[in-house]
Design a protein around this nucleic acid. Sequence first.
DNA 1: GCCAACGTTGGC
DNA 2: GCCAACGTTGGC
Length: 139
Amino acid sequence: MKYWLFKSEPSTWSWDDQVAKGDVGEEWDGVRNYQARNFMREMKIGDRGFFYHSQSEKAIVGTVEVIAEAHPDSKTDDDRWECVDIKALQPVKTSVTLDQIKGDERLSEMVLVNNSRLSVQPVTETEWRIICDLAGLPG
DNA sequence: GCCAACGTTGGC
DNA sequence: GCCAACGTTGGC
């Protein structure tokens, strides 16, 4: 199993919106970046991810699971763009802020720190465990 | 709201 | 195939 991070502006698509979809989940549509798309193509059903709120909040607020592998993005006719479907798994007990992540030496290699503009990114298993710990989640 | 960083587009 | 111009993202 691999681990990922999905970034969203809460004003566009928030954790609450994701939770409201329940186990049916939702397409992670709207990605118009090749790097991000390529990561989604690598995803398998059952992979886990963090749900990150950008802009005002800048914090990891929950975990999600991939429930459908990459398929064409239904929001566009442009066949270059694909997306996966994800469903909400668990809310964090304590949100993990960008400041916290930047301040933690163990997380200094995270893509979130080094390429803040990439909206879908891989997370290593080590990083996953550290953040779950900070978030008060079993992992 | 500003601006730096980055990705994409299109002219040459 | 290069690179300038432009658009977008996201942290501050």
